[in-house]
Design a protein around this nucleic acid. Structure first.
Lengths: 224, 224
DNA sequence: CGCCCATTTGAGAGTAATCAAGTTTTGTGG
DNA sequence: CCACAAAACTTGATTACTCTCAAATGGGCG
């Protein structure tokens, strides 16, 4: 079932928003909405790729698992974002796994339908290319971040991203578990916890998932 | 000037190989071949993106520079590879800089021409999507590698990639300077040098740019 | 209440960066 | 072809950072 809000979400996503009504209707099928519990896997690494996904509600973690149990969290996607676009053009296998990190609802968009639309309408191709470009850019960012910044600096950047353009004293809620944030930032939960605690001296108070920043500017000053 | 070998290169590249003659001719202009000296910059971070590039000869380094002089090498592209596809679909600015790390010749393919071809021919769109998918996959790999492996393990993986499917005793030449390999693997030259030296005990002899591996299997065994 | 899980904290070890010399290689002009 | 300067590379000592292992602590939920 697609609610009114779902349609708003669909309309706000980079991949679909430029699409004409008829194209959208050709792609979207109400029966393709999947509900996932927290922790439930949508697809696994190397599963055959038959669809890409749009998040209607919740958040999904995309990560790569290695032989001895290590996990590299590549990205965490939120409402109105699409993921798994790339797989349908190469191996037709997902190169990583997708797991819900909150209860979630996702809309599956069949590869075959989308390929057909691309073949029929160049605009759809451009939308797809834009969407993939934006993922590419995010990954480049992530590589830069992990190469050039220390753990503490990555945390600061993460907080600044959450703060957005607010200023002065700001209170915010961490969007997901600290353990997950830690992995997403490429560090151990212990290291994250310690580094976060160390930010107290520059006016960052943590209480559970609530973060109070005394003065956003002092954070920004510390940030390169 | 495009030589016969250049045409072979063009024909072997993922983005262009599936294209029909007429599309290719519409995209490629002999006057768009650029010769670069080693160290010469093709474009800088935030330059307006008017073209993507195919390497006819040499190698190009794509990297991101931060305010205080740090450099994150995102990828090094070789002959027959294309790069900078993504910029033309979003900001129309290159998100990183491109510098020749050997003397190089590159073919510029104008964004406008390519967009026109995509609009006219779905096949071109698919080729483009496949090309971008492959870059996406490479970046995901890089993130995994940098998150999950130690420096030494990344070096081993790098060597194994160079070795390809050869076995037994193998001698190979490092494809570019050690300093650059180090950065590409996300570590300091000093660390690279030391780690490489440490591989001697598992049968890796280094002499200048020449690497002799006594037994490839022992490398693979150490590799996860 | 009691268990499970996330989080915190501590101690110690390991990994990589930085700073500082050397050494080797490379490219260039004489 | 040699000399020399610049760049690349190596090596050593030290410091910074992050991980691992281990043991609390705390909260949420049946």
């Amino acid at each position: 079932m697609l609610t009114k809000d779902d349609w708003r979400t669909i309309r706000s996503c980079l991949l679909l928003r430029s699409m004409e009504e008829e194209d959208l209707l050709a792609l979207i099928d109400e029966r393709m909405v999947l509900s996932l519990e927290r922790g439930e896997q949508l697809f696994g690494q190397d599963d055959p790729a038959r669809a890409l996904f749009l998040i209607l509600e919740g958040r999904m973690k995309l990560s790569r698992l290695d032989a001895d149990g290590g996990e590299a969290v590549v990205h965490i996607f939120a409402k109105a974002e699409t993921f798994a676009e790339a797989a349908m053009f190469l191996d037709k296998k997902y190169p990583m796994s997708a797991v819900a990190v909150t209860p979630a609802r996702v809309l599956a968009i069949a590869s075959t339908a989308l390929r057909a639309r691309i073949a029929a309408k160049p605009d759809v191709a451009f939308a797809m290319l834009a969407s993939m470009s934006s993922h590419l850019k995010a990954l480049v960012n992530q590589i830069e971040t992990m190469t050039l910044l220390t753990g503490e600096e990555r945390i600061i950047r993460f907080l600044i991203d959450l703060i957005g353009n607010r200023s002065g004293a700001v209170t915010l809620t961490l969007p997901y578990e600290k353990t997950l944030i830690a992995k997403r930032l490429g560090m151990r939960p212990e290291t994250f916890s310690r580094s976060l605690a160390r930010l107290r001296v520059i006016g960052v108070e943590i209480k559970g998932a609530t973060v109070a920043v005394t003065d956003v500017q002092s954070l920004r000053d510390r940030h390169r």
